[in-house]
Design a protein around this nucleic acid. Structure first.
Length: 125
DNA sequence: AAGATGACTAACT
DNA sequence: AAGTTAGCCATCT
């Protein structure tokens, strides 16, 4: 006995929250965004926004994770504006129809909740 | 091993 | 509106 043929393959990341995060992020529909905090909440932990970024960093490329659909709570990209990451993310989002207003995304329109409210309450342009 | 860091946030000034 | 403080905790030095 005593063997552990099956040991947790996840090292360091230890828990399944990482996968939960990947799953949540992978489920963000095209043209919409979620904040780190919302992803954390949907993945089942309120205060772990910071780990979301960590999880994404470690996500394998094979997942094709739409990492660019995650922005910070202010609707801004959490990279320095002069960085490649910022430009890359902004371009990807704009290609999906997400509009930037002064470097800021209107979460009332492109966030989950905002998208719903928008559909329900407002006239389509 | 201990302190700094960070793809964060909410609360407070 | 913009800057600071505190909470979070895995990683990096």
């Amino acid at each position: 006995m005593a063997n552990d043929t099956l040991k947790p393959s996840v090292s360091g990341d230890s828990e399944s929250w990482v996968k939960a995060v990947w799953q949540v992020v992978g489920g963000i529909p095209r043209g919409h965004v979620l904040t780190y905090g919302e992803v954390a909440r949907l993945a089942g932990m309120n205060r772990w926004a910071r780990r979301v970024s960590r999880a994404m960093r470690r996500a394998p490329k094979s997942l094709q994770l739409p990492w660019h659909r995650v922005v910070n709570a202010q609707g801004r990209i959490s990279f320095p504006e002069d960085s490649n990451g910022y430009k890359r993310q902004k371009r990807l989002l704009e290609e999906e129809g997400v509009a930037f207003d002064g470097g800021r995304i209107d979460l009332d329109r492109f966030g989950y909740r905002g998208a719903l409210d928008h559909l329900i309450w407002s006239d389509p342009l």
